[in-house]
Amino acid sequence: MWGARYLNIKNKKALRNLSHETLTVYPVQNIYSCLLFVLKNSFLLYNGDLLSTKISRESFIRSIADLLRKAEIELPDDVANALRKAETAEENQVAKSQLQAILKNLEIAKKHGVPMCQDTGIMIFFAEIGTEFQSGFDLEAAIREAVTIATAEIPLRPNAVDPLTRKNSGNNTGVGIPDIHWKFVPGNQLKITAAPKGAGSENMSYLRMFNPTEIGNIKNFVLETVVNAGGMPCPPLTIGVGIGGSFDAAARLAKEALLEPLDAPMEGLEKEIFEAVNTLGIGCMGLGGSTTALAVHVKTAHCHTASLPVAINIQCWANRHASVVFRGDE
């Protein structure tokens, strides 16, 4: 965000207030919004109270809208690299052609600044908020506002509907949407990760309450889920497995597991499931081939002695997510 950078030069203190993890990757998409940002924040520069203690609501909303833009247009490096590696390794020519189309699609999306997939997802955010971080405004309402702005601006496909009437809200917000997961962490930072999730792969996800003695069946549960899904969730997949917790906590763990870096080494059960999944031969788009999954990540939590919840969250090749960090005053 050039506006933020410009201001930072003018005032060193502002640098601490708003800092993007990857500052340089923010393209100037809209010169008008950029100017507006500078104007609004210039105003704040003269407002000592706001500047010295808090980030402004406007700059926060702008950053979240930009965060969504980044998540929709560009894949994280680890995901893009995993896809390139899969294309190089693939020997099945049909699967190879599909992986090449994916890589070409990523280039075009980046070049034209358009979402990589028309299913721009349901809006999911993970927020890690420092116990000492204070915003002074309603963060949830601001994220909601950023979603409506991003929907019109990028644009995003309006996907949020009432579950029963199926009426579309038109702006990707609704009851419980955006879905924001909060977690307290030590410190005075706020990290927000946007992970817009497509329905094709989400629909192939499963949760099962096993008997505690059935640990040996977990691997098979994943394999069955992947076979039943076939090409429908747009493989190559990232597979998140949540084990333990409770009925809902297991699902949360599985979703969090999707955010793990794809180049992180897989161990134990992860590795075992990963290798087994890639012997299935489902391949890219279910047309056959050697890469059905890019990674399998498992997250666990303690659970009741009488239960063993296992959730499998399936993610398509477009494992979209991006993060931004806001720093509170020191």
Binding site: A101, N105, I108, D119, C234, M285, A318
Partner: peptide, 13 residues
């Protein structure tokens, strides 16, 4: 006819 899933930017062209 199968078209590569998710390749929406490519299709739009």
């Amino acid at each position: 006819l199968a078209y590569t899933g998710g390749c929406a930017a490519l299709a739009a062209e």
